[in-house]
Protein backbone atom coordinates (compact mmCIF):
# COMPACT_ATOMS: atom_id res chain seq x y z
CA UNK A 1 0.00 0.00 0.00
CA UNK A 2 2.79 2.42 0.87
CA UNK A 3 4.36 1.67 -2.49
CA UNK A 4 1.14 2.53 -4.29
CA UNK A 5 0.89 5.77 -2.37
CA UNK A 6 4.50 6.71 -3.09
CA UNK A 7 4.08 6.04 -6.79
CA UNK A 8 0.88 8.04 -6.79
CA UNK A 9 2.56 10.92 -5.05
CA UNK A 10 5.45 10.87 -7.48
CA UNK A 11 3.27 10.93 -10.55
CA UNK A 12 1.11 13.66 -9.00
CA UNK A 13 4.13 15.88 -8.58
CA UNK A 14 5.09 15.12 -12.18
CA UNK A 15 1.64 16.12 -13.38
CA UNK A 16 1.71 19.40 -11.49
CA UNK A 17 5.18 20.29 -12.73
CA UNK A 18 4.12 19.24 -16.22
CA UNK A 19 1.09 21.48 -16.22
CA UNK A 20 3.21 24.41 -15.04
CA UNK A 21 5.62 23.78 -17.90
CA UNK A 22 2.77 23.47 -20.38
CA UNK A 23 1.23 26.75 -19.30
CA UNK A 24 4.65 28.33 -19.36
CA UNK A 25 5.09 27.12 -22.93
CA UNK A 26 1.69 28.46 -23.96
CA UNK A 27 2.44 31.82 -22.40
CA UNK A 28 5.74 31.79 -24.19
CA UNK A 29 4.07 31.67 -27.59
CA UNK A 30 1.16 33.87 -26.56
CA UNK A 31 1.61 37.11 -28.49
CA UNK A 32 1.97 40.41 -26.72
CA UNK A 33 3.67 41.48 -23.59
CA UNK A 34 2.61 42.28 -20.03
CA UNK A 35 3.59 45.89 -20.64
CA UNK A 36 0.80 46.20 -23.23
CA UNK A 37 -1.68 46.18 -20.40
CA UNK A 38 0.42 48.27 -18.07
CA UNK A 39 1.14 51.10 -20.45
CA UNK A 40 -0.94 52.41 -23.34
CA UNK A 41 0.91 51.33 -26.54
CA UNK A 42 -0.11 54.52 -28.32
CA UNK A 43 1.85 56.73 -25.92
CA UNK A 44 4.61 54.40 -24.77
CA UNK A 45 8.06 55.17 -26.11
CA UNK A 46 10.50 52.34 -26.77
CA UNK A 47 12.65 53.42 -23.81
CA UNK A 48 9.65 53.43 -21.50
CA UNK A 49 8.70 49.92 -22.53
CA UNK A 50 12.27 48.67 -22.29
CA UNK A 51 12.66 50.13 -18.84
CA UNK A 52 9.38 48.66 -17.66
CA UNK A 53 10.23 45.25 -19.06
CA UNK A 54 13.53 45.33 -17.26
CA UNK A 55 11.93 46.31 -13.97
CA UNK A 56 9.36 43.53 -14.28
CA UNK A 57 12.04 41.04 -15.24
CA UNK A 58 10.26 40.09 -18.46
CA UNK A 59 13.19 41.18 -20.62
CA UNK A 60 15.06 38.04 -19.64
CA UNK A 61 14.78 34.82 -21.62
CA UNK A 62 11.65 32.98 -20.77
CA UNK A 63 13.39 29.91 -19.41
CA UNK A 64 15.25 32.06 -16.89
CA UNK A 65 11.97 33.65 -15.87
CA UNK A 66 10.51 30.20 -15.44
CA UNK A 67 13.49 28.85 -13.51
CA UNK A 68 13.37 31.84 -11.20
CA UNK A 69 9.65 31.50 -10.78
CA UNK A 70 9.97 27.80 -10.09
CA UNK A 71 12.72 28.13 -7.52
CA UNK A 72 10.73 30.77 -5.68
CA UNK A 73 7.69 28.54 -5.81
CA UNK A 74 9.54 25.66 -4.24
CA UNK A 75 10.23 27.96 -1.33
CA UNK A 76 6.53 28.72 -1.07
CA UNK A 77 6.79 32.13 -2.70
CA UNK A 78 4.27 32.43 -5.51
CA UNK A 79 5.41 35.87 -6.47
CA UNK A 80 3.53 39.03 -7.29
CA UNK A 81 1.24 40.09 -10.07
CA UNK A 82 3.11 41.98 -12.77
CA UNK A 83 0.18 44.37 -13.02
CA UNK A 84 0.15 45.78 -9.50
CA UNK A 85 2.61 43.79 -7.41
CA UNK A 86 -0.19 42.12 -5.51
CA UNK A 87 0.75 38.84 -3.84
CA UNK A 88 -0.43 35.95 -6.01
CA UNK A 89 -1.12 33.68 -3.08
CA UNK A 90 -3.19 36.37 -1.41
CA UNK A 91 -5.11 36.95 -4.63
CA UNK A 92 -5.94 33.26 -4.94
CA UNK A 93 -6.84 32.79 -1.30
CA UNK A 94 -9.08 35.88 -1.40
CA UNK A 95 -10.97 34.66 -4.43
CA UNK A 96 -11.16 30.95 -3.80
CA UNK A 97 -13.99 30.97 -1.24
CA UNK A 98 -16.30 32.68 -3.74
CA UNK A 99 -15.48 30.12 -6.44
CA UNK A 100 -15.90 27.29 -3.97
CA UNK A 101 -19.29 28.63 -2.89
CA UNK A 102 -20.39 28.92 -6.50
CA UNK A 103 -19.21 25.41 -7.36
CA UNK A 104 -20.91 23.96 -4.29
CA UNK A 105 -24.17 25.80 -4.94
CA UNK A 106 -24.13 24.81 -8.62
CA UNK A 107 -23.49 21.18 -7.74
CA UNK A 108 -26.39 21.35 -5.32
CA UNK A 109 -28.66 22.73 -8.05
CA UNK A 110 -27.37 20.15 -10.52
CA UNK A 111 -27.95 17.22 -8.17
CA UNK A 112 -31.32 18.35 -6.86
CA UNK A 113 -32.78 19.32 -10.20
CA UNK A 114 -31.11 16.42 -11.95
CA UNK A 115 -32.31 13.78 -9.50
CA UNK A 116 -35.85 15.12 -9.18
CA UNK A 117 -36.32 15.47 -12.94
CA UNK A 118 -34.53 12.20 -13.65
CA UNK A 119 -36.64 10.21 -11.20
CA UNK A 120 -39.89 11.87 -12.28
CA UNK A 121 -38.97 11.24 -15.84
CA UNK A 122 -38.26 7.57 -15.28
CA UNK A 123 -41.36 6.97 -13.16
CA UNK A 124 -43.61 8.74 -15.61
CA UNK A 125 -41.91 7.31 -18.60
CA UNK A 126 -43.23 8.64 -21.90
CA UNK A 127 -45.82 10.83 -20.29
CA UNK A 128 -45.82 14.63 -20.44
CA UNK A 129 -43.78 14.96 -17.23
CA UNK A 130 -41.10 12.74 -18.74
CA UNK A 131 -41.00 14.80 -21.90
CA UNK A 132 -40.83 18.12 -20.09
CA UNK A 133 -38.11 16.84 -17.77
CA UNK A 134 -36.06 15.57 -20.67
CA UNK A 135 -36.49 18.72 -22.71
CA UNK A 136 -35.48 20.86 -19.71
CA UNK A 137 -32.46 18.63 -19.21
CA UNK A 138 -31.49 18.87 -22.87
CA UNK A 139 -31.83 22.63 -22.83
CA UNK A 140 -29.53 22.77 -19.83
CA UNK A 141 -26.88 20.90 -21.78
CA UNK A 142 -27.42 22.76 -25.01
CA UNK A 143 -27.50 26.43 -24.07
CA UNK A 144 -24.30 28.49 -23.94
CA UNK A 145 -23.97 29.37 -20.24
CA UNK A 146 -23.30 33.03 -20.81
CA UNK A 147 -26.56 33.27 -22.68
CA UNK A 148 -28.65 31.44 -20.10
CA UNK A 149 -26.93 33.56 -17.44
CA UNK A 150 -27.93 36.79 -19.11
CA UNK A 151 -31.46 35.49 -19.71
CA UNK A 152 -31.73 34.72 -15.99
CA UNK A 153 -30.53 38.20 -15.09
CA UNK A 154 -33.04 39.84 -17.40
CA UNK A 155 -35.92 37.63 -16.28
CA UNK A 156 -35.41 37.05 -12.57
CA UNK A 157 -33.49 40.15 -11.66
CA UNK A 158 -34.60 42.91 -14.02
CA UNK A 159 -38.20 41.95 -14.69
CA UNK A 160 -39.15 40.24 -11.47
CA UNK A 161 -36.57 41.67 -9.09
CA UNK A 162 -36.26 38.43 -7.13
CA UNK A 163 -32.51 38.18 -6.98
CA UNK A 164 -29.58 40.56 -7.36
CA UNK A 165 -27.99 40.60 -10.80
CA UNK A 166 -24.40 40.61 -9.63
CA UNK A 167 -21.97 40.44 -6.77
CA UNK A 168 -20.52 37.81 -4.49
CA UNK A 169 -21.74 38.82 -1.05
CA UNK A 170 -24.50 36.81 0.53
CA UNK A 171 -26.46 33.76 -0.57
CA UNK A 172 -28.90 35.76 -2.67
CA UNK A 173 -26.18 36.69 -5.15
CA UNK A 174 -25.39 33.01 -5.46
CA UNK A 175 -28.82 31.96 -6.70
CA UNK A 176 -28.74 33.06 -10.34
CA UNK A 177 -25.18 32.00 -11.17
CA UNK A 178 -25.75 28.69 -9.41
CA UNK A 179 -28.83 28.07 -11.54
CA UNK A 180 -27.06 29.04 -14.75
CA UNK A 181 -24.14 26.75 -14.03
CA UNK A 182 -26.12 24.05 -12.24
CA UNK A 183 -28.55 23.51 -15.11
CA UNK A 184 -25.71 22.24 -17.28
CA UNK A 185 -24.87 19.56 -14.73
CA UNK A 186 -28.54 18.89 -14.14
CA UNK A 187 -28.94 18.09 -17.81
CA UNK A 188 -26.33 15.37 -17.64
CA UNK A 189 -27.68 13.97 -14.40
CA UNK A 190 -31.28 13.81 -15.66
CA UNK A 191 -30.12 11.76 -18.60
CA UNK A 192 -27.99 9.49 -16.46
CA UNK A 193 -30.55 8.91 -13.71
CA UNK A 194 -33.36 8.34 -16.14
CA UNK A 195 -31.57 5.81 -18.26
CA UNK A 196 -30.07 3.89 -15.36
CA UNK A 197 -33.39 3.77 -13.55
CA UNK A 198 -35.12 2.53 -16.66
CA UNK A 199 -32.46 -0.09 -17.22
CA UNK A 200 -32.97 -1.38 -13.75
CA UNK A 201 -36.73 -1.21 -13.95
CA UNK A 202 -36.56 -3.26 -17.11
CA UNK A 203 -34.29 -5.81 -15.61
CA UNK A 204 -35.68 -9.07 -14.59
CA UNK A 205 -34.74 -8.90 -10.98
CA UNK A 206 -37.33 -6.22 -10.46
CA UNK A 207 -39.92 -8.44 -11.96
CA UNK A 208 -38.70 -11.12 -9.64
CA UNK A 209 -38.89 -8.87 -6.64
CA UNK A 210 -42.39 -7.89 -7.58
CA UNK A 211 -43.37 -11.45 -7.96
CA UNK A 212 -42.23 -11.86 -4.38
CA UNK A 213 -45.03 -9.48 -3.47
CA UNK A 214 -43.16 -6.26 -2.79
CA UNK A 215 -45.19 -3.12 -3.34
CA UNK A 216 -44.72 -0.91 -6.36
CA UNK A 217 -43.37 1.90 -4.28
CA UNK A 218 -40.85 -0.25 -2.51
CA UNK A 219 -39.55 -1.64 -5.77
CA UNK A 220 -39.33 1.79 -7.25
CA UNK A 221 -37.54 3.61 -4.48
CA UNK A 222 -35.66 0.91 -2.66
CA UNK A 223 -34.14 -0.82 -5.59
CA UNK A 224 -34.45 1.13 -8.78
CA UNK A 225 -33.56 4.49 -7.29
CA UNK A 226 -30.76 3.18 -5.13
CA UNK A 227 -29.15 1.41 -8.02
CA UNK A 228 -29.56 4.42 -10.26
CA UNK A 229 -27.86 6.67 -7.74
CA UNK A 230 -24.47 5.05 -8.08
CA UNK A 231 -23.71 6.17 -11.64
CA UNK A 232 -25.28 9.54 -10.89
CA UNK A 233 -22.93 10.11 -7.98
CA UNK A 234 -19.94 9.05 -10.06
CA UNK A 235 -21.08 11.66 -12.51
CA UNK A 236 -21.15 14.41 -9.89
CA UNK A 237 -17.45 13.97 -9.16
CA UNK A 238 -16.73 14.50 -12.81
CA UNK A 239 -19.06 17.47 -13.09
CA UNK A 240 -17.33 19.38 -10.32
CA UNK A 241 -14.37 19.74 -12.64
CA UNK A 242 -16.63 20.96 -15.45
CA UNK A 243 -18.19 23.47 -13.13
CA UNK A 244 -14.86 24.86 -12.03
CA UNK A 245 -14.20 25.49 -15.71
CA UNK A 246 -17.65 27.01 -16.13
CA UNK A 247 -16.84 29.64 -13.52
CA UNK A 248 -14.53 31.32 -16.02
CA UNK A 249 -17.56 32.48 -17.98
CA UNK A 250 -20.18 32.68 -15.25
CA UNK A 251 -18.07 34.75 -12.88
CA UNK A 252 -17.72 37.36 -15.60
CA UNK A 253 -21.41 37.39 -16.47
CA UNK A 254 -22.45 37.83 -12.83
CA UNK A 255 -19.45 39.98 -11.84
CA UNK A 256 -18.49 37.59 -9.09
CA UNK A 257 -15.13 37.41 -7.44
CA UNK A 258 -13.32 34.21 -8.15
CA UNK A 259 -10.53 32.15 -9.56
CA UNK A 260 -12.08 31.89 -13.02
CA UNK A 261 -12.06 35.62 -13.57
CA UNK A 262 -8.57 36.06 -12.23
CA UNK A 263 -7.05 33.53 -14.57
CA UNK A 264 -8.92 34.67 -17.66
CA UNK A 265 -7.74 38.24 -17.07
CA UNK A 266 -4.20 37.19 -16.19
CA UNK A 267 -3.93 34.96 -19.24
CA UNK A 268 -4.89 37.79 -21.56
CA UNK A 269 -2.49 40.18 -19.84
CA UNK A 270 0.34 37.61 -19.84
CA UNK A 271 0.66 38.05 -16.11
CA UNK A 272 2.86 34.98 -15.70
CA UNK A 273 3.05 34.70 -11.90
CA UNK A 274 -0.73 34.91 -11.55
CA UNK A 275 -1.44 32.41 -14.34
CA UNK A 276 1.10 29.96 -12.95
CA UNK A 277 -0.23 30.41 -9.44
CA UNK A 278 -3.80 29.62 -10.41
CA UNK A 279 -2.78 26.70 -12.61
CA UNK A 280 -0.68 25.29 -9.80
CA UNK A 281 -3.63 25.65 -7.50
CA UNK A 282 -6.15 24.03 -9.84
CA UNK A 283 -3.74 21.26 -10.81
CA UNK A 284 -3.20 20.61 -7.12
CA UNK A 285 -6.93 20.37 -6.46
CA UNK A 286 -7.38 18.17 -9.52
CA UNK A 287 -4.60 15.79 -8.51
CA UNK A 288 -5.80 15.53 -4.91
CA UNK A 289 -9.38 14.78 -5.95
CA UNK A 290 -8.33 12.21 -8.50
CA UNK A 291 -5.87 10.52 -6.20
CA UNK A 292 -8.58 10.20 -3.60
CA UNK A 293 -11.01 8.79 -6.14
CA UNK A 294 -8.47 6.29 -7.47
CA UNK A 295 -7.37 5.23 -4.01
CA UNK A 296 -10.95 4.69 -2.98
CA UNK A 297 -11.40 2.41 -5.99
CA UNK A 298 -8.36 0.48 -4.87
CA UNK A 299 -9.94 -0.05 -1.51
CA UNK A 300 -13.32 -1.00 -2.95
CA UNK A 301 -12.10 -3.23 -5.71
CA UNK A 302 -8.64 -4.80 -5.42
CA UNK A 303 -8.72 -5.77 -9.08
CA UNK A 304 -8.06 -2.22 -10.29
CA UNK A 305 -4.95 -1.94 -8.19
CA UNK A 306 -2.74 -2.75 -11.12
CA UNK A 307 -4.40 -0.81 -13.90
CA UNK A 308 -3.80 2.73 -12.65
Amino acid sequence: MAGVLARRLFSSVLVIVGSLILVFAILYVLPGDPTDTIVDPSIATPEMVANLRHQLGVDQPFYIQFARYFSHMLRGDFGQSLMNSESVLGKILDSFPATLALTAASSFVAVTVGLVLGVLSAIHRNRPIDLIARVVGLFGISMPTFWSGILLIVLLSLKLGWFPAMGSDGWRTLVLPAIALGLVGAGFIVRMVRSSMLDIIDEHFILTLRSKGLTERAVMYKHALRNALIPAITMIGMLVGEMLAGTVVIETVFSRQGIGRIIADALMAKDLPVVQGVIFFSAFVYVIVNTLVDLSYTFIDPRVRRST
Binding site: I150, L158, A165, V253, S255
Partner: peptide, 18 residues
Protein backbone atom coordinates in the same frame (compact mmCIF):
# COMPACT_ATOMS: atom_id res chain seq x y z
CA UNK B 1 -16.86 51.25 -6.86
CA UNK B 2 -18.25 47.91 -7.99
CA UNK B 3 -16.55 46.15 -10.86
CA UNK B 4 -19.18 44.86 -13.31
CA UNK B 5 -17.73 44.04 -16.74
CA UNK B 6 -20.81 42.57 -18.41
CA UNK B 7 -22.91 45.36 -19.94
CA UNK B 8 -26.29 43.79 -19.35
CA UNK B 9 -25.43 43.10 -15.72
CA UNK B 10 -24.03 46.56 -15.12
CA UNK B 11 -27.00 48.44 -16.51
CA UNK B 12 -29.38 45.91 -14.99
CA UNK B 13 -27.87 46.58 -11.58
CA UNK B 14 -28.88 50.23 -11.75
CA UNK B 15 -32.35 49.37 -12.93
CA UNK B 16 -32.81 46.84 -10.17
CA UNK B 17 -31.38 49.24 -7.59
CA UNK B 18 -28.40 47.09 -6.71
Amino acid sequence: FKIIPEEATRIGSVQSGQ
